[in-house]
Simulated scan of single mutants.
Amino acid sequence: MIIWLASYPKSGNTYLRCFLASYFFSDDGKFEFDQLLKIHQFPNLKFSKFKSDSKVQASQNWIYNQNSFFNKNDLNIVKTHNCLTPFENNEFTTNNETLGAIYIVRDPRNVITSLTNHYSLSYEEAFNYMIDDNASLLQTSYENDFSNFTNLNSWSNHYKSWKNNTDFKTLFIKYEDFESRKEETFLSIINFINKLKNINSNIDENKFLNSIKSTNFSNLKNKEKNEGFSESMYSQKTGKKVNFFNLGFNNRWQKILPNNIKEKIYSKFNDELVELGYLNE
């Protein structure tokens, strides 16, 4: 069955994938980019049995494709940016396909600064994207196949859809804890996965520490610089590749976010900022 690594884009999903890939899919906990191939992303063209001619048809195939490609007896750690809110009455997943989920939430004031870099957007464009209930990640790939369609929704609805889910167990992680409580946070994630899989194994301490060390942000940034990273995108403005691992924990909204955008985020996401304790940080 599937254990989802879920998040709104630019919230630390890839950082967590790197750590889990190095811990679960290496012999010594030393990270290499090709280990990420063990943690797939869904929706995805390669996990689609049939061509989808529309977003609606793609959503109708989500559960069928999960059952077709992910063996229920295997450990399937799968990344997604999909909202859990049904799209045109089509569920993204159910407890028949899903064992559990890890959801990463990040301060939206830092999400927006990361979005502007990754997608080459202005702050206004990024903010409008984050409040758009119809937002999606979509690549109309080969012959207009919509199988990559990801129902993103707004930042708030995305977070609440996973938060309010009761169909399967979900571990909520704040991105900021990867910096302030790193070992404790990663340990809780491994224990959560092991418990879901009914694995009664002790933590391999040497492998655990190697995984943390080899996937720290500066190492990932240097690795991308020296080896390249297939998930980085090309800027629509310059045509050059944008660094995927950009600022990381040095992304401090207090220093770079324009005041008018701060006020818009406070106005739109105040309830979530309070609930998550971000107004006190």
Rank of each mutant, 00 (worst) to 15 (best):
I203T: 03
K268E: 15
Y175Q: 04
N210E: 11
T170K: 05
L276V: 07
H40N: 14
N96G: 14
W155T: 01
F87P: 00
A6W: 01
F245A: 02
K46W: 09
L84F: 05
N61V: 03
F42C: 05
Y119G: 01
K174W: 03
N153C: 14
Y266K: 07
L247R: 11
Y15D: 04
N110S: 15
S267A: 12
F127M: 07
F87A: 02
K240G: 08
F24V: 03
I112D: 00
S11R: 01
F127T: 00
L137H: 04
M233E: 13
E88V: 13
T94D: 07
D177N: 09
F192M: 10
K225V: 11
S52N: 07
S161E: 09
E184S: 12
K240M: 12
H81K: 04
E179H: 12
I2A: 05
D271V: 10
W62M: 09
I63T: 10
Y159T: 11
Y159I: 15
N216D: 15
Y129K: 13
Y159N: 09
N164W: 05
F178I: 06
V274S: 08
S122H: 07
K223D: 14
H118M: 14
Q66P: 02
S52T: 03
S114T: 05
N13Q: 09
V111H: 00
N95T: 11
Q236S: 15
S201F: 11
V242N: 10
N202Q: 14
N44M: 11
Q139C: 08
Q236E: 15
F186W: 04
V78T: 07
E231Y: 10
N65A: 05
R252E: 13
E88Q: 14
T14A: 04
S59I: 04
L45V: 12
K225C: 08
E143G: 08
K213C: 12
K223P: 03
N134R: 11
